[in-house]
Simulated assay, not measured.
Amino acid sequence: MRALRILLITAVILGGLFTLADRLAVGYAEREVAAKIRSSQGLSEEPEVSINGFPFLTQVVGSELDDVSVSADGVTARAGGHAIQVTEVTAELNSVRLNGLSSAVADRATGSARISYADLAKSAPKGASVSYAGAERAAKGQVKVSGPAVELLESTGVDVPGFAEGLLKGRTITAYSTVSIVGGDTVRVRAADLPGLPVPGFDGMLRDAVDYDLKLDGMPSTVKLDKALADERGLRFSGAGTDVRLAG
């Protein structure tokens, strides 16, 4: 009985030491992976990395991690020459194949990110503002784009003649535009409907003024976006991919 008790105590102690060693090892690995992601993805700060699953050490021996979570906030991207803030950037990576800690590739990944309306408007046509369009239109993936008619037209290089300027002066244009994702990194804004202008031939020019693309440079390449959802705080994007390079 005494020998059995000693064996049980020894097993508990060894189990505790193994757990401690495992947690120390995973903490070190998370820091190393975060640093490599920052370097390989060109981020301004290190993301938070969580290597899930227990035990970690046996996953390392098998050169494959079951699940890795990556999150970053305040990622600075560029769109149309303007710096914009991309927040709530997350990625869930599954079946991550390791080559030491020098490189890693995930079999599958899902990701999401958010851009505020204020940042979305930075690359909109001059004079345009972008805002929440209400629950019904948001459910259709639409946002509200509005601005002074004369300024919007002139932003596309249209020379508004004096008689037309007199008719349009003081008129605010409101368009409800559908947002979509093109190529995994470009936000496309296209007017679903536009008000008519009291100047013949200017309706097409107005559409050219409110339709625009917003290409995001500097987003983590682990997040390939394909869907956009509008809510009160801005646009939330999500996407998925396979064979996603995490580092290296």
Rank of each mutant, 00 (worst) to 15 (best):
V150I: 14
G141I: 07
A128P: 04
T186Y: 11
R188N: 14
T172S: 05
T174V: 13
S155E: 00
G127Y: 02
E136C: 01
K169I: 05
V160P: 10
G162D: 12
R188G: 08
S146D: 03
G166D: 14
V182D: 15
A124N: 00
I181S: 12
A139F: 04
P148S: 11
S129K: 08
D159R: 08
R171D: 13
L168D: 07
D159G: 08
F163A: 14
K140Y: 11
V145D: 03
S177P: 04
S129T: 09
L167P: 01
V179S: 07
V179G: 08
A135V: 12
A124M: 04
Y176L: 04
K122V: 05
V182P: 00
V158S: 06
Q142A: 06
V145Q: 00
Y132D: 08
G134R: 10
R137L: 13
A149C: 02
K169V: 05
D159C: 05
Y176H: 14
E136S: 15
A149N: 02
E151A: 00
E136D: 14
I181D: 11
P161Y: 09
G147R: 01
S123N: 12
D185C: 06
G184P: 09
S177M: 05
G141C: 08
T174H: 10
P148R: 03
V160S: 08
G141E: 10
F163T: 10
T172F: 01
V150D: 09
L120V: 06
G170I: 12
K144D: 11
A124F: 01
I181N: 09
V182A: 15
R188A: 15
K126Y: 02
V182W: 14
V179M: 06
A139R: 11
Y176K: 06
P161W: 04
K169S: 15
T156M: 02
V189T: 11
Y132P: 06
K140D: 12
E165T: 11
P125Q: 02
D159V: 12
T186I: 09
S123H: 08
L167W: 04
T172Q: 08
S129M: 03
G184K: 13
L167G: 05
V145Y: 01
G134Q: 10
P161F: 05
K144Y: 07
S155T: 00
T172V: 00
D185L: 07
V160K: 05
G157A: 01
F163P: 00
E154T: 03
G166Q: 15
A121M: 07
V189R: 07
R137K: 11
V158E: 12
V160M: 10
V160A: 11
G127M: 00
S131Y: 11
G162M: 08
E151I: 04
A124S: 06
P148L: 08
K140V: 01
E151T: 11
G166V: 09
V179T: 07
T156P: 01
E165W: 01
K122D: 03
E154Q: 08
G127T: 02
S146M: 06
A175L: 05
L152M: 00
L152D: 03
K126H: 05
E154S: 01
K169C: 03
G147W: 02
T156F: 00
D159L: 08
V187I: 15
T186M: 07
L120G: 10
S177F: 06
P148T: 09
